[in-house]
């Protein structure tokens, strides 16, 4: 999985490109955390899953961990444009209660 990011005014977009599973998760956590640490002054973080070709329950754990981190920093997190497969898993997890889903529109 590749992680890229884009900063736009008070918004930070973090893109999850490829497959998120247990194998890729430690690298993903490390990269996403360092992006958050570097740009912690931002108002909100959008986790973009439009280019995520595969994700299992590992992704739920990764997102919940980032949610806790953002909460400590007083930053709001959103799930942005989840693909059909990702959306199905995140819906089961109930994570949208704390990290609302946002669609490009």
């Amino acid at each position: 999985m590749d992680i890229t990011c884009k900063a736009e005014k008070s918004k930070i977009y973090i893109y999850f490109i490829g497959e998120l599973d247990e194998y890729s998760s430690s690298g993903v956590k490390f990269t996403v955390d360092s992006i958050i640490d570097k740009t912690a002054t931002g108002q909100s973080v959008f986790f973009d899953f439009s280019q995520t070709t595969f994700m299992d329950s590992t992704g739920i754990g990764v997102l919940l961990g980032r949610y806790k981190k953002l909460k400590k920093l007083g930053i709001k997190g959103y799930v942005y444009n989840p693909s059909f497969q990702v959306d199905k898993i995140l819906q089961i997890s109930g994570i949208y209660d704390v990290m609302p889903k946002y669609k490009r529109g």
Partner: peptide
């Protein structure tokens, strides 16, 4: 502690 979600079996069953 490893940030596992505990949702693996639930997803399989769904």
């Amino acid at each position: 502690d490893d940030e596992r979600s505990g949702m693996g079996f639930t997803i399989i069953k769904t």
